[in-house]
C-alpha cells in the first residue's frame, strides 16, 4: 500500500528501514487521525525532533514513528516546523494519542518547539525556569554558567551551575582534513584554556 496515493500532499523521504514520508505541518493532524483510524497505525511509539543547525530553513523537523499493531510495520512521518528559528511551531497530536503529551513536552523542553493546542506545554526534564534548549545545535554540551535555581541553597553552599569540564574527553578526531592535522579532542570546545567559560547571559 502506498500512502501517497491516498494522501497526495505526502512526499517520500529516503529511508532504509521503514516507509517514510514528509508531511506539511498544515496537514499533519488530519493525516495522523486518518492513519490511526483507517490505516491501523494505532500506536505512536516515538516522537522527536531533529535540529538541522542554525540558519537552516526549515530548521526543526518533527519526526513521528507510528506502529501498526496488525501488520507490525513501522511508519515514519517527518514534518518541518513552521515559524522562525526562535519560536518554531507545529500542531499537537496529543488529542489523538495521549502518549504524545509527554513526548511533545520533551521536544519543547529540548528544542523549544511550541506545539499548538497542547494542553499543558511545560518543561519536563529540566526545571521550569531553565532558560535554554539543550538539544539545539548551538548549545554546548558543557552548558552555560548561571545561577543555581534555589537561591537559598546557593547562598548557603555557594553552588553555581557551571560549564562541565570537557578536558578529560571523550576525544574524537574530526572528519575533514588530512589525518596528520587532526588531533583527537573533545567535540565540545566551547571552553578551554584559551577560551573563556560560556557566560550566563539570557536565553540563547
Amino acid at each position: 500500500m502506498n500512502l501517497k496515493e491516498t494522501f497526495a500532499f505526502l512526499e517520500e523521504r529516503p529511508a532504509k528501514d521503514c516507509p517514510a514520508y514528509n508531511c506539511p505541518a498544515g496537514h499533519l493532524v488530519n493525516l495522523m487521525q486518518a492513519l490511526r483510524d483507517q490505516h491501523g497505525y494505532s500506536m505512536l511509539v516515538d516522537m522527536t525532533a531533529v535540529d538541522e543547525g542554525p540558519g537552516q530553513t526549515p530548521r526543526f523537523i518533527a519526526v513521528y514513528h507510528l506502529f501498526n499493531l496488525e501488520s507490525f510495520e513501522y511508519l515514519r512521518i517527518a514534518s518541518a516546523c513552521e515559524g522562525d528559528e526562535s519560536a518554531p511551531e507545529i500542531p499537537t497530536v496529543s488529542h489523538i494519542w495521549a502518549g504524545a503529551d509527554w513526548h511533545e513536552r520533551e521536544c519543547y523542553d529540548m528544542f523549544g518547539i511550541r506545539f499548538k493546542g497542547h494542553p499543558d506545554l511545560r518543561r519536563i526534564l529540566m526545571w521550569d525556569e531553565y532558560p535554554y534548549y539543550p538539544l539545539r545545535k548551538e548549545f554546548p554540551l558543557a552548558g552555560f554558567d548561571m545561577d543555581f535555581q534555589a537561591a537559598d541553597v546557593a547562598e548557603r553552599t555557594g553552588v553555581r551551575i557551571q560549564p562541565a569540564p570537557m578536558a578529560g574527553g571523550p576525544f574524537v578526531s574530526g572528519d575533514e582534513g588530512p589525518m596528520s592535522e587532526k588531533e583527537p579532542r573533545a567535540k565540545d570546545q566551547s571552553w578551554r584554556e584559551q577560551h573563556k567559560k560560556p557566560g550566563g547571559s539570557g536565553p540563547a
Binding site: 539543550p134 554540551l141 571523550p170 573533545a186 565540545d188
Partner: peptide, 17 residues
Amino acid sequence: VIGYLHRGDEKIAENMT
C-alpha cells in the same frame, strides 16, 4: 514530575563516536 535524573544522554551522544 520527572527529570531528576536527566543527564543529557542525547546531547552527549552527539559529541562522541
